[in-house]
């Protein structure tokens, strides 16, 4: 009873709260980092150095009037933000934050596939938001978004196949353990796959330079144009939660999860003094920072250029990468 119900529930409780808090502070981090990149200070008024801004924003959003457009499909309009947030949170159930069983909710043998399939549900939130708003800009944006997400999902999934080939398992814990055994992070074994997943991850989380679905300058805010208050906030939570998911996945698949650098080099054993989860969060932070940095630097792709990049560049490279990986796997 204790092991099968109470402890997992407790873990889920802690995890959900941790993720949501992390997401709120991600917004602050993003604003701060972008501000620094643009030689500004960012939020400074709420709390010391604006730290409490992350709490002030959700309070504001909860208290705001929640408007449903007159001719919107009420049910779907409400359902859409929920549908986009829930998958983003569900995914965390199979993300191992450390090697010990304490640090993950569950480790299923199809962990990676589970992540891919659950995130693929998130696209419904975007499509339905655009459709249910009964407004032209959101509809255009949601069409863009769904086409974009499906295309890049294919590219990312194809790329992950080569990682699975290298690791020989679909379990998230197993993939990290495989890296421990080989003594080399897969980022060094599969550099091409790493870059592809990173680019695909940017596209799947609608981040710059692939933030077309919410391109403010073109589509006045994209699929969530008609949303306000907490429902609007849910979309943001989903976006940031998805970002955290992608960085976690990249960390696990390519940068050894909770492992220290060069896990098999005895001379560096002192690095083990730092607990694994700190390594994990440190690596995640680097990638989150990278995501924000990219947003502050790059212009936005156009829709057709984005699709061309996905279908004509990323997918062929991903397939070639699978073939190369397979050949090496057979030869070695």
């Amino acid at each position: 009873m204790l092991d099968t119900i109470v402890i997992p529930l407790l873990k889920i409780l802690v995890l959900l709260n941790a993720v949501l808090v992390a997401v709120t502070f991600m917004t602050l981090l993003e604003r701060k980092v972008i501000a620094w990149a643009q030689s500004r200070l960012g939020p400074m008024r709420v709390g010391p150095y604006g730290v409490l801004q992350a709490i002030a924003d959700p309070i504001k959003l909860i208290l705001k009037e929640d408007i449903t457009p007159a001719r919107a499909d009420r049910m779907l309009f409400t359902l859409a933000p929920i549908l986009s947030l829930v998958p983003a949170l569900v995914v965390f159930s199979v993300v191992p934050f450390g090697g010990d069983e304490l640090f993950y909710v569950t480790d299923i043998n199809v962990g990676l596939l589970f992540i891919i399939s659950v995130t693929s549900i998130g696209v419904y939130g975007i499509i339905l938001a655009g459709w249910a708003s009964n407004s032209k800009y959101p509809l255009l944006a949601s069409l863009r978004a769904s086409a974009q997400l499906i295309s890049y999902e294919i590219a990312v999934t194809m790329t992950l196949v080569s990682v699975i080939l290298t690791a020989g398992t679909l379990s998230m814990v197993g993939i990290v353990e495989a890296q421990q055994e080989s003594g080399l992070w897969f980022g060094f074994v599969q550099p091409v796959a790493f870059v592809l997943v990173l680019i695909g991850g940017l596209a799947e989380t609608n981040r710059a330079p692939f933030d077309l679905p919410e391109a403010e300058q073109e589509l006045t805010g994209g699929f969530h144009t008609e949303y306000s208050g907490m429902r609007f906030a849910l979309f943001f939570l989903a976006e940031y939660a998805n970002m955290i998911v992608i960085t976690a996945v990249v960390t696990i698949l390519f940068w050894g999860g909770w492992l220290r650098p060069f896990p098999n080099v005895e001379a560096l054993a002192f690095l083990d003094l730092v607990p694994g989860w700190i390594w994990f969060f440190g690596k995640m932070f680097v990638f989150l920072y990278l995501f924000i940095w990219i947003r502050a630097t790059l212009p936005r792709y156009r829709y057709d250029q984005l699709m061309r990049l996905g279908w004509k560049v990323l997918i062929p490279i991903a397939i070639a990468n699978i073939v190369v990986t397979g050949v090496f796997k057979v030869l070695l």
Binding site: A296, T297, L298, R300
Partner: peptide, 16 residues
């Protein structure tokens, strides 16, 4: 112009 194309940092640099 840069902001319209999505490069928001240029906007703040130019305004500076």
């Amino acid at each position: 112009h840069a902001m319209d194309i999505g490069a928001m940092t240029v906007f703040l640099y130019a305004f500076r």
